[in-house]
């Protein structure tokens, strides 16, 4: 069984929001579209987005980290948003595990959003139906696109390739490997939703310097006679020992 998912590498995400607007851009004219915006040029503009990048600060100065945190629907393996839907508009595709909303069935009761602990669904205030990340289902199978383009829009856009896409049930896939090797984790594991999307934590590279590495034989100061040598007149053991 296939479970497609995104794996987001917080180690390299710089919070550029490319995934946010490229998602909006693809989807507003796609099968989920339009993704409406209210007050687009007025006070407090707001609209439907499938993906948001948030920023958190962790710790206290100067030992603080700034964390950029992209979040879209996690395509839970056990999605609590699906069974609660009264119309069947919310469904999880058996063939690839993508959780979708059937916009023609949805009655806009918003109940599914109450059931999603992640705040991953957004109600389209103009279309009056529930919307959410589709994993770009209308791209990834589109045979009219070149192979390299059959990826979610956000994945293609991401300048740091912080967004990996693939089948987390296939142990050989790049995403499974990344989860395994780089400490991939799920959000709010306490609810047993088994989110398909995973996150990779920050990883730090350190340099360890030993003092003796500073004083090497090929020190160029030697060439120029600049390595500090004690003056002849300075005290030495020679002066005090008699053997």
């Amino acid at each position: 069984m296939t479970q497609l998912a995104l794996v987001i590498d917080l180690n390299v995400c710089v919070g550029c929001h490319a995934c946010v607007t490229s998602c909006k851009e693809w989807n507003t004219s796609g099968s989920a579209g339009p993704l409406c915006d209210e007050r687009p040029y007025q006070a407090d503009p707001t609209g439907t987005f499938f993906n948001r990048v948030q920023t958190f600060e962790v710790g206290h100065y100067p030992h603080s980290e700034t964390l950029h945190f992209p979040k879209s629907c996690l395509h839970c393996e056990d999605p609590p948003c699906v069974p609660v839907c009264p119309t069947g508009a919310s469904y999880k595709r058996e063939e690839d595990g993508i959780v979708l909303v059937d916009y023609d069935k949805c009655i806009g009761c918003k109940y599914c959003t109450w059931a999603c602990p992640y705040g991953a669904r957004e109600f389209d205030e103009k279309q009056k139906v529930m919307k959410k990340c589709t994993l770009c289902v209308d791209r990834i199978y589109d045979q009219s696109l070149a192979e390299i383009d059959r990826k979610p829009s956000c994945v293609k856009a991401c300048p740091t390739s912080a967004r990996l896409f693939g089948d987390i049930h296939d142990p050989e896939s790049a995403v499974s490997q990344a989860i395994r090797e780089d400490g991939g984790y799920a959000l709010m594991p306490e609810w047993g939703t088994h989110p398909a999307n995973h996150y990779l934590p920050r990883r730090k590279t350190k340099l360890n310097i030993h003092n003796d590495e500073l004083e090497r034989a090929d020190n160029p100061l030697k060439v120029d006679g600049q390595l500090p040598k004690p003056g002849k007149g300075e005290p030495s053991m020679d002066d005090v020992s008699a053997w």
Binding site: T21, S22, W26, K156
Partner: peptide, 22 residues
């Protein structure tokens, strides 16, 4: 309908940023 990065371009190799996508 959509603006994406040109994968054959030496500068961005197909990626695009938030502004470019808007």
């Amino acid at each position: 309908r959509y603006i994406d990065g040109n994968p054959d371009h030496p500068l961005n190799n197909g990626v695009i940023c938030a502004k470019g996508s808007s």
